[in-house]
Amino acid sequence: MSDDEVKNPEKPGRRYFLETVTGVVAGAGVCGAAWPFISSMNPSTDVLAKSTAEVDLGDIAVGEAKTVEWQGKPVFILHRTPEQIAEVRKSVDTKDPTPDEQRVQKPEWLVVVGLCTHLGCVPSRKDKGWFCPCHGSVYDNSGRILSGPAPKNLILPEYEFLTENRILIGKKEG
């Protein structure tokens, strides 16, 4: 074997089967080894276990709104008066038109995620709905966007009525 071959064994155009296989297997291993680290940044099991919230509606008077926490986010629960219901049922002429019937399970109870769909600020309660202090989006009593920069209505969380006066927000596991 010549000296040149020792110093420069990789001749251009010469590919080795063994090198390719080893490279692929090692590459797969590196990806596999990365997964536990990536996965460790996902919610841990105790956080996942807390992904539902049970709320007692008994103490919310008619016409009153309450903010509860679910998955670290505010959820607005509004106990609507018949007038409020009548008003939101009247028109669907908003930026993101959806009839109120599709946004509630029971007409007197509105449950929405209290984060402005614009950039995630928490809107504050204002006479006929909510008003976002950050960039001035206005929502009605169905959580629908009326004006301002927000593109969409307030998001509806999954929830179910456990009893007449108790709801479970979020998906129940199992």
Partner: peptide, 13 residues
């Protein structure tokens, strides 16, 4: 213990 039991692959890391 939280790392060992609840964090995904925390025990491994």
């Amino acid at each position: 213990e939280h790392i060992m039991r609840e964090v995904n692959y925390g025990w491994l890391i």
